[in-house]
Nucleic acid binder design. Sequence first.
DNA 1: TGCAGAAGCGAAAACGTTTCCGGTAACGCT
DNA 2: AGCGTTACCGGAAACGTTTTCGCTTCTGCA
Lengths: 337, 337
Amino acid sequence: MTIKDIARISGVSITTVSRVLNNRPDVSDESRRKVLEVIENNNYIPNNSARDLVKTKSDAIGLVVRGVSNPFYTDIIRAVESGITAGGYTMVMQQIGSNEDELKRAAMMEREKRLRGLILLGGRFDYTPTDLALLNVPFVCCSFSNHYGTLTEKEYSSVSIADKETAYQAVRHLIANGHRRIAALITCTDDRSISQLRYEGYVQAMEEAGFPLEDPLVICTDTYNIQGAYQAMTRALDDGGNFTAVFAISDNMAIGAMRALRENGRAVPEDCSVIAVDGIEVSDYIDPPLTTFCQPMEEMGRHSVEILLDMIGKHSGNRHETLPTVLRQGGSVRPLV
Amino acid sequence: MTIKDIARISGVSITTVSRVLNNRPDVSDESRRKVLEVIENNNYIPNNSARDLVKTKSDAIGLVVRGVSNPFYTDIIRAVESGITAGGYTMVMQQIGSNEDELKRAAMMEREKRLRGLILLGGRFDYTPTDLALLNVPFVCCSFSNHYGTLTEKEYSSVSIADKETAYQAVRHLIANGHRRIAALITCTDDRSISQLRYEGYVQAMEEAGFPLEDPLVICTDTYNIQGAYQAMTRALDDGGNFTAVFAISDNMAIGAMRALRENGRAVPEDCSVIAVDGIEVSDYIDPPLTTFCQPMEEMGRHSVEILLDMIGKHSGNRHETLPTVLRQGGSVRPLV
DNA sequence: TGCAGAAGCGAAAACGTTTCCGGTAACGCT
DNA sequence: AGCGTTACCGGAAACGTTTTCGCTTCTGCA
């Protein structure tokens, strides 16, 4: 069942059917009605490949994610998918390993699938203009910060929170509660990711407060997941663990750390406070609920798509949005007595 | 840069370039070398739309998911994406609301995007042959059970765990620990989903043991998430909550329930045991770690893709896999004294 | 030497759309 | 009556591939 068949059956030309299909004005109501009826009766659906071919572009938008299983990303992905589908586009998703170059991958995808646009979720933040030149379609970086200043604002779009600032606030919160010996639980393998940014917020808060920033206070894990955090924290505690509070760069890692603390006989928050940033749902249900700065994930996904669709449809320029985080007071932070 | 340009530059016909592109045998080494060189130099990438058009099929595989944010699905999705991409296909994902008909949506996608195949994740289990006739491409149902027997095994492929049996085992585990008054925490809105199946396992275990199955023991929530479970459990406890153990149909719901229990002054497992099925990572890190039957999520995703690709590539018939679950003993179950 | 088969290649049709271009008919105006 | 404008429509080219078919040329064998 092709457009030709529809044309034949409804007694009009292919062109007219195409016009109806694309909601163009210059078709009489009579023709339009008839064509629509025939389409309905034969439940005809236009062939996307043919469409894409002649328009030399597809209806696909690519989503490149680092590690889909991070529950924080999950909510963003959901919002992104909703927006893309609602906008009449198709979402094609690919995830990449932490040591892959998402820009290369994105460029590959873009050309192979004739993408209309791209959303890069959770990537590096040291792109250069040369890197970006790989991409020939609009793109939006979500959960991303141009920390190193390698790019000007004109060169890309982004939706994110103020990562460094939020981390800074989190550590300030601990400091305001009297803590001085505050450990940072971070990932160390990928020094170009958002983790690094949050770590810098920690460093800033500590230095500003004039607190010593000795090595054992920085706890590293290579794997950005619960288990890695758990193991790293266990090791740190075995080594003495001389701190009264922990700042974790993600909820997930905080949860891993809390188990380690518990097993080590340290109660949270009595013996050790914990704070993080992300605000995934589950962290509000553990015991004690995690005190954390929540990112507006749904909004982040939604805005990313909005910006991208504007860039695609209205040819609007690059835009940046830094969304606010909100502190969710669980019970994992307590004043140091 | 099209195939025509490549042909012109390398001094052969379009046909020959196409042959090289598709690794066909009847090209001389000489021609092949030259063409490949030209392709390389101009970093030409074939236009997928044109390819799809003439082949009347695309390289896209659809993934239809009910509620992407369920952390249990997340791991499956990750494995599915890996498999699809590794197989040289493209994953296009759509999520649907709990009251949408995934088969309709899948059929729509299939025709619009000329899909090669479909993976249905977490759907209903009362499809009829008529329903399935909507789909003209191979498909695999993941996390699915043909519980009502409306289909014969020949009519579809599936990868899942033995949901009813696993739920049954979970409740048996509670019974073996001396519990009689066992509450079931279930979702009630979608009576055709996997939840229903697990609920039936609960019923079977209770009836078999000859335990009364009074109404207040079955705790319902409409929303399949942590918060819904939390609220439902809070309500149940406010109403008396006369039970010594809870069987939750998912880890997520168990986590919500545990907070409700805690806030109600009931310690887990001292005052109330909790068991579930899913085995998401985080539930092993809460306090107490949840005792739960783990699904092999990565494997489920992987197998789904394997079966699908076999069906697409080798035209192999429908296949079914029921993967084993394994009990992860946390600390949320204790013998009733 | 003659011939069958194979190896290598190219012309052209086909896939199902969109769009450009031009055409007709009807209408209102001077 | 003549003309310009508008509304509506259709033919045909174009998009970039794959594939069918047929044509050479070469090889091996009787």
